[in-house]
Design a protein around this nucleic acid. Structure first.
Lengths: 343, 343
DNA sequence: TCCAATGATGTAAACCTTTACATGGGGAGT
DNA sequence: ACTCCCCATGTAAAGGTTTACATCATTGGA
């Protein structure tokens, strides 16, 4: 019975002995169709195994029911959970999700732009602060879009994430409370807005504690394990060391911890370390990492809800939705080592 | 000039003063169109910013130019690099790639099945040995499909991966060469074909070394960090311990190493550990992990090439393409500790 | 009994492409 | 000079769906 080509709405209509219009209505506006008819149609659908041809539907409607999620690196440990939130919310509104990753290659980014321009996605979720569309970034015509996790460097794209300043503040306040004053900030960045906000939280915390600007140690980084390790190497070539490392994210913290272990130091005995994000690995490390948790699933859900609003044609209430971060205290922080205690 | 709705082929045709058929040909069969005409069309395309509407094109052609890649967990450290290989190959043949992840939720899997059934993808790459379509798994009508990384538990789906038996054999041979005889295999599994093949390599190695079956220690697992840790706990409740742990993959090895560290043991001083996959983390661990490398990008490339063959209507030469794995020797293996050396 | 209104269904156009087939012009061969 | 062929282009149908509009039947009110 099941032929080679998939059943069309016409097959269903023939079997149900109604017109194709009625079949379409029975599916999409069931209240507009008589009960008995609806029944016949449903039976016919079951018999034929019909599913609506999404290409035809999207063509007719002028919009797709898919939402594209673009990330620079799918392997990012934060990505997976955000995705769950995004997907659940999307699915419950009849949208599907597709994932694209750019590997920071503008060429790949342009492919996705083409995908968007050919109307294959109704909306866009950006898991990157920097639009990945190469030289077309500024001129690109985008569908309704929302940034997650990192504010987007282009006007008009709303953003859902965590309150970075508050999160960083919580971390630095813990270190201060433990007695640290020489606290290094690892992973500052001019191009990544989320990172500079975390830096801001760091500064505010030290301001409040009365630590003069001259005593602060700032190192740049890009949030990778490598960059954490690199920053540590640079630091060890200077004369003054901090007693604690406040890292811009967990990956950086992992890099720092690897470097410290390699040099034979004990954490937190010799140095304290904090991260940001609370990636799954943070639990498994030795010592386990004290860090700021991102409510990832909630961020995803909230971002998708916002995007659906945009798709429905509503103006968003806020251009930025910030969720509250929690400090997760584990074992990588303690009071500073003796030599830091003078004064 | 740029109106609200995107330019169609008709806009281009009007500006270029040709028919829409010519425009279509100029784009897709440029050799069939006169140079001067092609020029006019290209100019018109530049002016209008036209991109072909993929939905209309796919509808007409009866097939999409997208390939769906389904993985249970996008965060899998092996996934990212395979994807690069898949994408490069696909792109160079005019196909795009979409990623779906199921989180091992059959409900999600069914969504992707629906996606496939509505013709939105021309082909399917499976990053999972177990088809993720819930109760419809066995009856599902799939487009041309290829498994990567793990053989697929359903007839007729070809598979591209590494030679698991050979890889495992290399690892176990190294341990034997270092003098180990009591070698535990962590992560055996009946349901995951790749894992039972690795187990087979382990057995063959021990057979060759003359280690009797009675002296082998086998523990089950599902390839997660947790399962490695759990297996270790079980092992410590027994009376006999191995001198080396051969783990079914790197994640499992990480779990084992975490457990050993937590108990205060030194690796490789007290116990040797090997993994499989060579995930990025393997380099960063202390000690760095001796493991079997999967040529991930090559696997991806080769799998996509195979899928493109299928899409072109050709029968695949082989139903299984196995690439050669390399043993990467790092610092987690040494000669067995003294107490294992008697005899 | 008739009219109007309501509700259920059908008809047909439109969405944007691709491509088989038709058309027309020009060059080569005789 | 005539035919034939080929090349470049145009015409129109088809692909599967949604929906405005038309149609028809039924019901309630007068």
């Amino acid at each position: 019975m099941s032929t080679s080509s998939p059943a069309t709405i016409e097959d269903v209509a023939r079997i149900a002995q109604v017109s194709i219009a009625t079949v379409s209505r029975a599916i999409h506006m069931p209240e507009k169709v008589a009960n008995s008819t609806r029944l016949k149609v449903n039976q016919a659908i079951a018999i034929t195994g019909y599913t609506t041809n999404a290409m035809a539907r999207s063509l007719r409607l002028g919009r797709s029911n898919m939402i594209l999620v673009v990330a620079p690196d799918i392997g990012d440990p934060n990505f997976s959970n955000i995705l769950i939130g995004l997907e659940n919310e999307a699915r419950s509104h009849g949208y599907g999700i597709l994932i694209g990753h750019t590997h920071n290659d503008p060429q790949r980014g342009l492919e996705y732009l083409k995908f968007l321009n050919s109307n294959q996605a109704a909306g866009l979720i950006l898991f990157t602060g920097i639009l990945p569309f190469g030289h077309q970034t500024m001129t690109a015509r985008l569908p309704p879009s929302v940034g997650v996790f990192e504010p987007v460097y282009k006007g008009g794209i709303p953003y859902v994430g965590v309150d970075d300043i508050e999160g960083a503040r919580k971390a630095v306040d813990l270190l201060i409370a433990e007695g640290h004053r020489k606290i290094a900030f690892i992973g500052d960045s001019r191009t990544r807005l989320a990172y500079s906000r975390r830096r801001q939280g760091y500064d505010e915390g030290l301001d409040a504690a009365g630590v003069p600007v001259g005593e602060r140690i700032i190192l740049e980084g890009d949030g990778t394990i490598e960059s954490g390790r690199l920053a540590l190497e640079q630091l060890f070539m200077r004369d003054t060391l901090p007693s604690a490392f406040m890292c811009v994210n967990d990956q950086t913290a992992i890099g720092v911890m690897i470097g410290l272990s390699a040099r034979g130091y004990d954490i937190p005995g010799d140095f304290s370390v904090t991260g940001f994000d609370d990636v799954p690995q943070a639990t498994f490390m030795t010592p386990s990492l004290t860090t700021v948790r991102q409510p990832r699933t909630a961020i995803g859900k909230s971002a998708m809800a916002l995007l659906l609003e945009l798709l429905a044609g509503n103006e968003p209430a806020d251009t930025e939705i910030l969720l509250r971060p929690d400090l997760i205290v584990r074992n990588s922080v303690s009071a500073p080592a003796r030599q830091f205690l003078r004064r």
